[in-house]
Simulated assay, not measured.
Amino acid sequence: MGDRIVKGQGRTQVRLEALDTGNGICLCLTGGEAPHVGGVVLAAPRPSLTGQGNSCDLWTATVPGHKDVYLAQKAAGKLCTELQVNVSATVGIHIDGAQKQELEIIGENAMEALDEYITAVKSRRETDGGSHHTG
């Protein structure tokens, strides 16, 4: 069982679906007029190279000609760093003739969905006594 969060509407709607396996999170962000697989990122947590805080390493695979991977990198990095778990993120959001403002709204909707998901996971972990399994 996983989580599903929808933000926005119409052409700029974003759907987040996530499965917490107990040992990592599988994230899927799709939306727009033609959901698809455009970019995939694997993120693994590690201590920051500055010696302060947390960071993560990212590995990226892009479908040629797709820019979805930039949002996949941002999403995977955010989840990995904030939740300290391995993350696989698949992103595919497409709208025909996208305007700059629409792309910004898509990004905002995606980050809003991620923030909501992170809050839910942290809340479940507190309820479960720190367990990483949420779903």
Rank of each mutant, 00 (worst) to 15 (best):
E102N: 03
K122D: 00
G31T: 10
A75Y: 01
A44Q: 09
V69K: 07
S131A: 12
A18V: 10
R46S: 09
G77N: 03
G97W: 11
L71V: 06
W59K: 11
R125I: 09
V40P: 07
C80F: 00
L42P: 00
T60G: 00
D128Q: 06
G51V: 03
P64C: 11
Y117C: 01
Q99F: 09
L71T: 06
R124T: 07
L58T: 12
G31F: 10
V40C: 12
D57V: 12
A120F: 10
A61Y: 15
A113W: 06
G107E: 01
P47G: 07
L58P: 07
T12W: 12
K7A: 09
G129Y: 09
V63M: 14
M111R: 05
S131V: 08
P45D: 13
E102L: 04
L103C: 08
G130L: 03
G22Q: 07
G39M: 09
V37S: 15
I118P: 00
R4P: 03
C26S: 13
A98Y: 03
A120P: 03
V69W: 15
G77W: 05
S55R: 04
Q52Y: 09
G38M: 13
V6C: 10
T90I: 05
T134P: 00
L49N: 08
G130T: 08
E126D: 14
H133T: 11
V91Q: 04
A18E: 13
D20A: 10
G2C: 04
V87N: 00
Q99V: 13
L79Y: 02
V6Y: 05
K100D: 07
A75L: 01
K7Y: 03
L114C: 11
K74Q: 04
E17P: 04
K74N: 01
L49W: 01
Q9M: 03
A61R: 09
E116R: 10
Q52C: 06
D20M: 12
P64G: 10
Q13G: 13
H94G: 03
G22A: 08
T30W: 03
A44F: 08
K67T: 07
I105A: 07
W59V: 08
E104N: 08
L83G: 00
T12G: 08
D68S: 09
N54P: 02
T21V: 11
V85E: 06
C56Y: 05
G77A: 04
T12I: 15
I118T: 06
G53A: 12
A110K: 00
E116W: 00
H132L: 07
G129I: 13
I106T: 06
V14F: 02
H66P: 12
L49F: 11
E102W: 01
G32T: 05
A113K: 04
Q52M: 11
R4E: 10
R46D: 04
P64K: 10
N109P: 07
V37L: 14
C56V: 14
V14K: 05
L58A: 09
I93Y: 04
C28W: 07
E112Y: 00
V63R: 15
I106D: 02
V40M: 12
I93C: 02
V41P: 03
Q99H: 11
D68M: 01
T81Q: 12
K7G: 01
Q9A: 08
T50E: 12
Y117N: 00
A110L: 15
K122E: 01
I95C: 04
P45R: 06
D68G: 02
A89T: 00
C28P: 02
S48W: 14
